[in-house]
């Protein structure tokens, strides 16, 4: 479970302009996450799961309250500082994979390391290691268009994990995958969480994902309605 605190959310409110007024997407959310957690925001569409994930990922900022990630207050970060935080400490996994279409599998996974100015030798070692984690070492020269959905998502996981980030944020990572692929992906992420102590936070309403979560935070209309630790993992294939 959590060793030390890496995320503190205190009184988070997020409002978006809508028409002439404001729409409140998140209301008074206060949470903490520690190293090595395998947690997820669950709830129906529009409950605010992705919004809170975006704010933790410094892609968006709070309207009120404070979100501290790796000792950095998200609301006070400049564009450059937020980019640096994402570059060094965060990994993202998206529902639609978001792989760069003109790059090969190898180049997609290598990309975050290019931004870290790593040496070519260190990059190669890290990329091959990450591709080994997800079982895609035989596809390094393929382009995303040549891969299945499950393979694309595994590339996305390798890209998120290649720099060994402290935190990986996964927004509906299995929404476009069938049951077999979903379980395979989740098992991969669970292994990485266990072996590398990387914190995973999901935004999902997919029961296949929910079954794997060790901490489940239920959101409804932008409010936390339940925050529970799930003791026993249930791997039930649908």
């Amino acid at each position: 479970m959590a060793d030390s605190r890496i995320i503190t959310i205190d009184g988070l409110v997020k409002k978006f302009p809508m028409g002439g007024g404001w729409f409140t997407a998140l209301s008074d959310i206060s949470l903490e996450f520690g190293t090595g957690e395998f947690a997820g925001f669950v709830g129906p569409s529009g409950s605010g799961k992705t919004t809170v994930l975006n704010i933790i990922g410094s892609l968006d900022s709070p309207s009120e309250g404070e979100v501290i990630v790796m000792d950095k207050s998200i609301g006070e970060l400049s564009h450059g500082e937020a980019a640096k935080l994402r570059n060094r400490h965060l990994g993202f996994i998206f529902q639609t994979y978001n792989l760069l279409p003109v790059y090969t599998v190898y180049e997609n996974v290598e990309f975050p390391l290019l931004l870290l100015n790593m040496s070519p030798r260190a990059r190669k070692k890290a990329v091959l290691e990450a591709l080994e984690w997800v079982g895609l070492t035989d596809k390094i020269k393929s382009r995303p268009a040549q891969l299945s959905g499950g393979q694309c998502q595994r590339v996305a996981i390798a890209r998120a994990m290649v720099k060994k980030p402290v935190l990986v944020l996964a927004d509906e990572p299995t929404a476009n995958l069938d049951a077999d692929n979903s379980h395979h992906i989740l098992e991969t992420m669970e292994t990485l969480n266990r072996e590398l102590k990387t914190t995973f936070i999901f935004a999902t309403h997919d029961h296949k994902v929910i079954r794997y979560l060790k901490r489940k935070i239920s959101l409804e209309d932008g409010r936390v309605v339940k925050d529970e630790i799930v003791k026993a993992k249930r791997k039930v294939k649908e």
């Binding site: 892609l59 564009h79 450059g80 980019a83 640096k84 994402r86 998206f94």
Partner: peptide, 16 residues
């Protein structure tokens, strides 16, 4: 724009 968003998420500044 999806690629642009991804580049930003991966740690690129908008300027970059």
């Amino acid at each position: 724009r999806k690629e642009i968003g991804t580049l930003i998420a991966l740690g690129m500044t908008r300027t970059r």
